[in-house]
């Protein structure tokens, strides 16, 4: 499997680049993990072990940091990460209804967060700082405000349609 080996080494090239940039300083662990996640969309276990070795700390420390912060994902996420705000302002404006609509629409639930086709990941977050537009949903980095059930369904169909068109190309 020559091909595999090839992607494997490319994978670590990027890691080395990030590590070099931060001069292999354990103090920069969080920044390093952030950049790695930006690249891979999540933190693969082998890469975390690699980072630990490079920084001269135990893999447990890296793992501990990665699990402490909610921003880090240990599993791959879907192409569209949908975050439903459940901050105070959104909560009192019934963000739960939006979440339920999305769960139904995407066939996801509290435990199952990513759809099988790896298209959608559904998460809740505590306040996105756009409370003036409550309830708020964010798809990747795009903010959608004053959401209703209807607007939510429309949003999902739009994304699905877009995906279909891309597939056909």
């Amino acid at each position: 499997m020559g091909n595999d080996r090839n992607t494997f080494s490319i994978k670590f090239d990027k890691v080395c680049e990030v590590l070099d940039k931060h001069e292999c300083s354990p103090n920069k662990l969080i920044a390093i993990l952030q950049e790695i996640q930006e690249e891979y969309k999540y933190l693969p276990e082998d890469i975390m072990t690699y980072i630990a070795t490079a920084l001269g700390i135990s893999p447990g420390v890296v793992f501990g940091v990665a699990t402490f912060y909610s921003h880090f994902a240990l599993e791959p996420k879907g192409k569209y990460v949908i975050k439903v705000c459940d901050g105070t302002a959104c909560h009192v404006r019934k963000s739960k209804d939006i979440l339920q609509t999305l769960e139904k629409e995407l066939g996801l639930s509290g435990k199952k967060k990513t759809s099988d086709d790896m298209l959608f990941t559904l998460e809740t977050v505590a306040c996105l700082g756009a409370c003036g537009l409550a309830p708020v949903v964010v798809v990747n980095d795009e903010v959608h405000g004053s959401m209703t059930k209807e607007k939510t369904i429309e949003l999902i169909s739009r994304i699905r349609e877009q995906e279909r068109q891309e597939m056909n190309k």
Binding site: N27, L29, I30, V65, Y69, H71, A126
Partner: peptide
């Protein structure tokens, strides 16, 4: 930051900048 409310607390924030939990 990397998403932890408690990091708003000053000593936790310092720990976070230093690369810890």
């Amino acid at each position: 930051g990397a998403g932890a409310f408690v990091c708003g607390e000053e000593t936790a924030l310092i720990a976070s900048i230093e690369g810890h939990r």
